[in-house]
Amino acid sequence: MPKRQTKVLLQIFLITLSAGIFSFKPLFSLTGINIFAVLDVSEYLHISIFFISLLLAYMITYSAIEADSPSLVMVLNIAGTGPAGLDKVEFDRIINDDVLVKPRVHDLVIDKMVYLEGDRYRLTRKGVLLSRIFIIYRKILGAGKGG
């Protein structure tokens, strides 16, 4: 598996879209099938918007599946103990910073949103941009820090 899976997925899908769009005309000339008879720029735009909207939905679902959600980890661990139940001390021992926080910091480094300078994590330009988008949006929404 590649390290930056979302980036690779994006590349694969965008290459597929470009290849598809460029092959409409030759395919229509070769086969004469009506489905390939794209006529003007607005139709290409429509196809692209259709494809990109589904691509975004797939990518966002993929990234949600990639990392274990805390609620999922908690529920599965509790379910794993059956009718005996999961002791609170054991719960706190299993579900800790090593499971919930440190892997996400590591992800941010891999995705080049954060870099390590000495022992301090700092934001890259991409990280600053993403932080600002969420800070501004949540300010408009009147919501807190989240998480």
Partner: peptide
């Protein structure tokens, strides 16, 4: 996102 925000 929360970690990014804390660092920011």
């Amino acid at each position: 996102i929360r970690i990014l925000r804390e660092i920011y």
